[in-house]
């Protein structure tokens, strides 16, 4: 799809489908106006949802037509939303809009979203220029971390003897005691390991943001805003941590992606 085709399509849809209440315009995010559609990225709402660019001044919105006859939020919808934004973020600054944003048509995108907030969006995009978000996820390897905790908490060996070969019903108290000790130990390790990861990536990052753990064996869950030119440095830093934690923590790096964790609205339009 070329840019001109995308524009034409939207002009057609303005003329032809503006009054169709069953079709809306899904909005993904704000980008600079000089983006160009080159791929066949498909959008929210199925493979037929072709992604288009709606421009105003120096900024633009990534949108696609959406049929309104079904609820949004399938795994495919969520993946399409993030996939599109992240693909864009690898190339240009992107202000992500929260999942599920639908307006009546492309003209509303210009008149109510882009035009009134042009300068504010443009300034934020300039700040993001050359930067992207990366997410660092570490997950403890259960056997390894339990072995480590056993070594560090000698009282666990004794409790373990109590529950060995015993049914859960008669050893419930000892089991809960074990569980509490392990849970506290994992929390302490998570805090220490998160701090270690934070210390390591901070020198290569513009900003960092802690994320809540999303799994009880999470070791690290961290978002960083990094100059895309420094992605290699970020990977090198993480390689070192991964080596140090080998067999103990499975470390993953996601990105580049849109700056979901670093965009803060300043009461925009709330007044």
């Amino acid at each position: 799809m070329s840019t001109s085709e995308a524009t034409d399509r939207h002009q057609r849809s303005e003329d032809g489908q503006r009054s169709d209440p069953r079709v809306g315009t899904y909005v993904y995010g704000i980008v600079p106006a000089d983006v160009e559609e080159t791929g066949d990225a498909h959008g929210v709402g199925g493979p037929s949802a072709e992604v288009a660019v709606v421009r105003h001044g120096d900024i633009a919105a990534l949108v696609s037509e959406l049929r309104l006859d079904r609820p949004l939020g399938t795994p495919e919808d969520l993946m399409a939303h993030e996939g599109l934004l992240d693909a864009a973020a690898a190339e240009v600054p992107v202000l992500p809009i929260r999942f599920g944003a639908v307006v009546t048509g492309p003209e509303a995108v210009v008149e109510e979203l882009l035009a009134p907030h042009h300068d504010e969006f443009q300034a934020a995009l300039e700040e993001l220029e050359g930067r992207a978000e990366y997410v660092i996820k570490g997950r403890y390897v259960e056997r390894a971390i339990l072995t480590e905790i056993m070594d560090e908490h000698p009282q666990l060996a004794q409790l373990r003897e109590q529950i060995r070969d015993q049914p859960e019903e008669v050893t419930r108290d000892a089991r809960i005691q074990i569980g509490e000790i392990v849970d506290q130990a994992i929390n302490a390790k998570r805090e220490a390991d998160t701090q270690a990861a934070l210390d390591a990536v901070t020198p290569v990052s513009e900003f960092t943001s802690l994320r809540d753990p999303s799994h009880e064996l999470d070791a690290v869950h961290l978002a960083v805003l990094v100059e895309t030119d420094r992605q290699d440095e970020l990977e090198q830093v993480l390689d070192k941590i991964a080596q140090r934690w080998a067999g103990r923590v499975e470390l993953r790096l996601l990105g580049p992606m849109a700056a979901y964790d670093f965009i803060v609205a300043q009461g925009a339009g709330d007044g």
Binding site: G24, V27, G29, I30, L66, L68, P71, L72, G73, T74, L95, P96, I97, R98, F99, G100, A101, V102, V103, T104, G105, A108, E111, E112, L113, P116, H117, A258, Y260, D261, I263, A265, G267, A268, G269, D270
Partner: peptide, 19 residues
Amino acid sequence: KGLVIDAYVRVSLVGIELL
């Protein structure tokens, strides 16, 4: 996460059911 469209667009917002 991400900018909330409601903060910017009022008139032409389309409410849609989210799973």
